[in-house]
Design a protein around this nucleic acid. Structure first.
Length: 569
RNA sequence: GCGGGCGUAGUGUAGCCUGGUAUCACGCUAGCUUGCCAAGCUAGUGACUCGGGUUCAAAUCCCGGCGCCCGCACCA
């Protein structure tokens, strides 16, 4: 029964132009999908709602960075090294296999390293599954799409990004400055990611090129609170913690009891719930599951996935992770850039310390080209020891250099220390847009019990078309009137669909299938009294309103629902 | 990638075993009709997943590719 729904939904998705496999006339390519007119609109509307939460609601800044990135970025992020699967090759028939899939009786073999896999395979005497030949040692296969930046031989190696997050990290100082050097703040990006999956499946849920909406929220490492936490404090969350227990609990209690590690993380878990419900996820089919300790990235201190129940089972749609300072640390290490925030002490400290001050007038002539490096080394080295003969020994470029006494002075200085630099921590809510879109479609899908009749009960805000506009019959001037009404609505910024074909019931049905919340019909009474009917998708109820008022009424209907029309007239 | 199931108009299907270019329904388009929930009549539209082989002839038989679904595994 569940299977049936899924097939019917996929059929509807294609028939009505939501989504379908890409490149169909060339046989299709696994893991690549195309959004049709309804799907593209639905996707844009969901992303819009997301921005309403994250950009308008939280005041976060949206950026837009390239899909193609130089190798250095992913060397720093760890993707070049770690974003891999292990494969083994048969030495006889040359066939390749995923190493972790050949390992038997080990829980989570994917978590094994090269040595662990190698040992496990050897220990089990694993042979080639197709010819029985000997297997090679496990080799890493990177799952990023590799390319070259620039067409000529001296081009740089590049990758299509597997996530949008990195630009929010490596451009941290720009964002920090934009927010006038105040924590906490957030940066978001809505865009595409690319993962060259070995075997993509399950339609929109696992694609090779997919859409995500990511936020990186930079917080003080010792103050992982959130200023607006009180707004969500009483939101009830369904939490499955990694001890296997399920809690239905208010956000504030989840924090107090330590189920969710900190307030900032809990805030974004609660915000995620609000967003998902807003775009049409069924609350009964939503839960948050904490990552198991061995599933969590080693740097993450806590991670919660929003999981949505679909015909495929529970599917992860959003991940909310406390990533600590890992990502910024990595880019600091690899690039040398100072990706830090500055914190002013309440009172500036005065400290006295001994320093070695280079005498440049002597250093220069004596050491020539090396003088600059020597001076820098003297200034940066804390507590340099002066040898018994009065010289200093320094290691410059791997060679020891002896600096005679006349080249420096020993001084005691008073310094004012007004604050300290530190690497912020990051809370990362990461949303799979395609998965959310698909989930919204499944949860909106509604079939009338008796007849074969489908209604997509999409929330008004995400529905691709807001109003169907019909003349009851395309004659007697009804069609002309309806066309004018349609143009007025579109002029007011409302997405409409004009339709004068077939019976009125058929046209309602078409709109129901794409989730259009309202249909306006022009009939003979319109010509006499100037009123039109508005029909509600979910209740099929109708009310008459003056046609003249429709364009003004429409935005209120879209905001508050059908009851506005009922109450109004 | 493994195991299983599968691929015929936009959709759902018949035909495949036993080779002779394709059934029915819905949809869609036009006309008539009806006059507020997929009504009716008429006409039209439109398909054998791709490639190779066997054959006088392939949707049908054989081989291979691609794709889809389920399970395993992985993941946003």
């Amino acid at each position: 029964m569940v299977r049936m729904d899924e097939d019917k939904l996929l059929a509807l998705a294609k028939r009505r132009g939501f989504f379908y496999p890409a490149f169909e006339i060339y046989g299709g390519v696994a893991g690549l999908y195309e959004y049709g007119p309804m799907g593209a609109a639905l996707k844009a509307n969901i992303a819009d709602r997301w921005r309403r939460f994250y950009v308008l609601g939280e005041g976060f800044a949206e950026i837009d960075s390239p899909n193609v990135s130089p190798e250095e970025v992913f060397a720093a992020s760890g993707h070049v090294k770690e974003f891999t699967d292990f494969s083994v090759e048969c030495t006889k028939c040359r066939e390749a296999f995923r190493a972790d899939h050949l390992v038997k009786d080990i829980e989570n073999p994917a978590a094994l390293g090269a040595d662990g896999l190698s040992a496990a395979l050897k220990g089990q005497g694993a042979k080639c599954p197709s010819c029985g030949g000997e297997l090679s040692v496990p080799q890493k296969v990177n799952l990023m799409f590799k390319t070259q930046i620039g067409p000529t031989a001296n081009s740089r190696v590049g990758y299509l990004r597997p996530e949008t997050a990195q630009a929010m990290f490596f451009s941290f100082v720009n964002h920090y400055r934009h927010f006038r050097e105040q924590l906490p703040f957030g940066v978001v990006q809505v865009g595409r990611g690319f993962r060259n999956e070995i075997s993509p499946r399950q339609g929109l849920l696992r694609q090779r090129e997919f859409n995500m909406m990511e936020a990186e929220v930079f917080v003080h490492p010792e103050r992982k609170t959130w200023p607006r936490f009180h707004e969500v404090a009483d939101d009830r969350l369904r939490l499955v913690s990694n001890d296997g227990k399920e809690h239905v609990i208010a956000a504030k209690d989840a924090v107090h009891k330590g189920i969710i590690k900190n307030e900032a993380l809990a805030y974004f878990v609660a915000l995620t719930q609000r967003f998902l419900l807003d775009v049409g996820i069924d609350p009964k089919r939503l839960r948050f599951r904490q990552h198991l300790t061995n599933e969590m990235a080693h740097y993450a201190s806590d991670c919660w996935d929003a999981e949505v129940e679909l015909s495929y089972g529970w599917v992860e749609a959003v991940g909310v992770a406390d990533r600590g300072s890992y990502d910024l640390d990595q880019h600091i290490r690899h690039s040398g850039a100072q990706l830090t925030a500055f914190e002013r002490f309440a009172e500036a400290n005065e400290v006295e310390r001994d320093v070695i001050a280079p005498v440049h007038a002597r250093l220069g002539p004596l050491f020539k080209g090396k003088a600059k490096a020597i001076a820098a080394a003297m200034e940066s080295a804390e507590g340099l020891a002066v040898e018994s003969d009065g010289t200093i020994k320094l290691a410059i470029d791997g060679a020891e250099v002896t600096v005679p006494p006349e080249c420096f002075e020993r001084k005691r200085v008073r310094e004012k220390v007004s604050g300290r630099r530190f690497v912020p921590h990051v809370i990362e809510p990461s949303y799979g847009l395609d998965r959310i879109l698909y989930s919204v479609m499944e949860h909106s899908y509604h079939e009338e019990e008796k007849e074969e009749y489908t209604v997509m009960r999409l929330p008004i805000s995400v529905a691709p078309i807001k109003f169907g506009v019909f003349p009851l019959m395309a004659k007697d001037g009804l069609d002309g009137f309806a066309m004018k009404l349609d143009a007025e609505l579109r002029d007011a910024g409302v997405v409409t669909s004009y339709d004068d074909s077939g019976s009125i019931g058929r046209r309602y049905a078409r709109m129901d299938e794409v989730g259009t919340p309202f249909c306006v019909t022009v009939d003979h009474e319109t010509l006499e009294k100037g009123t039109v009917t508005i029909r509600d998708r979910d209740s099929k109820a109708q009310v008459r309103v003056p046609a003249k008022e429709l364009a003004a009424l429409a935005p209120r209907l879209l905001r508050h629902g059908f009851s506005v029309a009922k109450g109004g007239k």
